[in-house]
Simulated scan of single mutants.
Amino acid sequence: MLLPALEKDQRRIIQELRKSGALSRSALAARLEISPAALTKLSRALLSMGVVEELGDPAHQARGRPAVPLRLASSGGYAVGATAHKGMLDIALVDFAGAVVATHHETIPPIDPRQFARKVREITHELVSRHNLLGQRMLGMGVAVPGPALSNDGERWSVVDALPGWRGAPLHEILSGELGWPLWLENDANAAALAEFYLGGLLRDFSTVVVLLLGYGIGAGVIVDGRLMRGQYGVAGEVGCLFPMDQPRPSPLDLLACLRADGCAITSVAEIDPTAAEQRPTIEAWLDRAAEQLEVVCNTAFAWIDPGAIVLAGPLPGEVLCGLEARLSRAALVVTVGNRRPPVRVSGLEGSPITLGAALLPIHALAA
């Protein structure tokens, strides 16, 4: 059961409820500058679709029930997000209201796109059954890929070498053929930006944000006026080009390489531990250098885009991300009107922002 196409003002209602929480019809009409009569008609249609619901007992309300609050209905549908990284597979399910229903994480050998789709389909069916979602509306699936787009249509991607058979392949065709669900493909940094925007609460306070994803490498997801900014050729936010691969970079893999070079016998980013005595000096030195490198990213993002927040996210330990934030807060960053500086903060999300953001892609597409 697919969700019917929504009118522009229906999308605006959904986005306002996602931003502000439950609101009465009269409050919605005032905020969106829609007549009460038109709002009542629009909300009636959304109620019939099952994507919004009424709060409280409307039995004794006046005709039109203007004071009965409306909110997004979690039962309006669910969406699935998936991502593959070197050695691991992540899947997440979210409901229409944006709540996380289930997550799945497992270690896997290198996997090609077709194998990935089959495994994701199998695990998704298990999760849907386990969480009593059978019969509910499936809104679609989002897949986040580590790498920039190679074509404007989002069909082919410059995926990292660690995933065999992904780079340059017709991913949308392959994955759609195996999954059979409405499908969205997106760069992992853009997916992380959606997770921070919706689940991280940025939507409530800001319309424009930048998320710096320190993941396989370094990238940025940019949301301007509530919409993902992709650029002319789909590679907006590819800030990794500022830090060539043959030179030190402010990325988790670079920190891992530094630790190994200093004699720390670790094999993955997951083993980075700021509390370990043998790792601490290397991590501190890396933080000093990485923060200095990130100054140019924060300054230029702030000067060009004027974001309400610049969020540091990724698989690095929270103490490492906080170390970057602390150094950037002390740095001589640019200042603009009102003595404002780049508003750097650390992600507060639990779980992978990439996978959660992938799951939000179908939901974002409905209202953005």
Rank of each mutant, 00 (worst) to 15 (best):
P353W: 01
L17R: 07
A368H: 13
L17H: 06
V335E: 14
A261S: 13
G200N: 07
L3Y: 05
D225A: 13
L72Y: 04
L89M: 09
D205E: 15
P274I: 04
P148K: 08
S207Q: 13
G177Y: 05
G168Y: 15
P146T: 14
R44K: 11
I272A: 01
P182H: 05
L356M: 10
A367L: 15
L6M: 10
R44C: 06
C298P: 02
I34W: 02
V334F: 13
G201I: 10
T275I: 04
Q279K: 09
A261N: 13
R118E: 10
S75Y: 03
V337G: 13
L23V: 02
G348N: 12
L316R: 05
L2D: 13
Q61N: 14
H364M: 07
P110T: 14
T355H: 05
R340V: 12
C298K: 05
E33H: 15
I266C: 13
A270E: 10
D225S: 14
N339H: 15
I13D: 02
F302Y: 11
H60L: 13
I218R: 10
D57A: 00
V128D: 02
P248G: 02
V210W: 01
P36M: 11
R280T: 15
L212S: 04
P250L: 06
I305H: 00
E106L: 05
E126K: 02
R289G: 01
T40K: 05
I283F: 08
E106C: 07
D153T: 04
A73V: 09
G201T: 11
L214C: 15
L259V: 12
G357F: 00
V311A: 00
S176N: 05
L139P: 00
L46G: 12
R71N: 07
L70S: 02
E106W: 05
M138H: 12
A169I: 12
G226T: 10
H364Q: 12
M88R: 14
G77Y: 04
P274L: 04
L28H: 03
S176I: 00
A191N: 04
